[in-house]
Computed example of a mutant assay.
Amino acid sequence: MNKINKVRVIVASIVLMFSIKSNAQIVKAEIRATGLTCSMCSNAINKQLKTLPEVVNVETDLNTNTFTVTLTEGNTLSPKVFKEKVEKAGFFIGTLVLTAKPETITQSTYILVNNNTANGTEIQFQVVDKGYVTEKEFKKLSKSYKNVETYASNNEDDFHIKILN
């Protein structure tokens, strides 16, 4: 391969990487928080989530302690951001379910733990790592996913997901 062709391949690869990254996006996050005892608790989480510039709206269900976060188109947020915001408010995530474009889960940071396939223009999946489910649920999942080599490693930048639809 001559020098010009090598440069073309490198440029094409870079363009492809950035175009995939820009298409990857979370559309909506449903966060069930734990440890809340009153409406002031939910207000603290609500305020933290709204500090993200990518957040369009946050709806709160006080009966289930669930926060439905609608996000701007083209965002590049990761599940880690939601965990950090909830913990900054002084609480923990019990469940994190994300709705995203299918190409989002093709990124190397997402590791599929079930055999479901993604269909449609948007998919819904749950992050099943420690810190994204309750401690009790994590212990149960650790047994179920013992064959997934990366699951027990608790790498903060890898997200093990279970496709729901």
Rank of each mutant, 00 (worst) to 15 (best):
164 L>C: 05
152 A>M: 12
90 G>N: 06
73 E>R: 10
159 F>K: 08
165 N>T: 09
17 M>L: 14
71 L>C: 03
134 T>D: 14
141 L>R: 03
71 L>P: 01
156 E>F: 08
151 Y>R: 11
122 E>L: 09
118 A>P: 03
101 K>T: 15
17 M>H: 13
31 I>S: 07
164 L>E: 11
145 Y>N: 01
124 Q>I: 14
50 K>Q: 13
105 I>T: 12
67 F>I: 07
83 K>P: 03
54 E>T: 01
48 Q>R: 12
148 V>R: 00
90 G>M: 03
101 K>C: 08
90 G>V: 06
14 I>L: 14
93 I>N: 06
94 G>K: 05
119 N>G: 08
20 I>P: 00
71 L>V: 04
137 E>C: 08
130 K>H: 05
161 I>T: 03
111 I>Q: 12
29 A>C: 07
65 N>Y: 06
26 I>T: 02
65 N>D: 15
26 I>M: 09
118 A>K: 05
76 T>D: 11
147 N>D: 13
43 N>D: 09
71 L>M: 09
9 V>R: 09
99 T>Y: 03
104 T>Q: 15
37 T>P: 02
123 I>L: 09
146 K>D: 10
146 K>T: 10
113 V>N: 08
35 G>A: 11
72 T>W: 00
68 T>G: 03
93 I>K: 04
121 T>N: 15
73 E>S: 10
89 A>E: 03
4 I>Q: 12
63 N>W: 02
61 D>G: 07
2 N>H: 13
161 I>W: 10
45 I>R: 00
17 M>C: 12
160 H>N: 09
23 N>L: 14
57 N>W: 02
